[in-house]
Amino acid sequence: MIRNRSIMLFLAGAMLGLAIGPGNAFAGEAVEGTAKADKLEQCVEPTPVMRRNHFEFIKHQRDLTVHQGIRGSKHSLAGCIDCHARKDASGKAVPVNAQGQFCAGCHEYVAASLDCFSCHSAVPGEK
């Protein structure tokens, strides 16, 4: 638990560091400003809260969804992806775990492995 705490703090610090650093150098073919989130003021929680606690939120939510069928909650991994995936020049969604993209950007920097997408889709779902 103590170890988790310190990793959390390190993660949060690293992300803050990233945010004030130079722009995303690894954007690849994704076009800046094409994610829904790029046009919004704030995420489902204030940004510092999301930075520190996003994994707690989606971990609780995953249990509620799988075991209790709750799919209309504020916190959801599908929601993260829907909002944060950028598009390439042709309008195709770029996976959030592609190098330098929203999830991978920080996770690569802090070397925290990102396992969600070995099972979950990393692009917005078809509606």
């Binding site: 599908a78 992806i81 070995s118 099972c119 979950h120 889709s121 917005p124 779902g125 078809e126």
Partner: peptide
């Protein structure tokens, strides 16, 4: 490689 949002699937 490809999975649906509503049906996650992994090895």
């Amino acid at each position: 490689a490809e999975k649906l949002t509503h049906t996650p699937r992994g090895k």
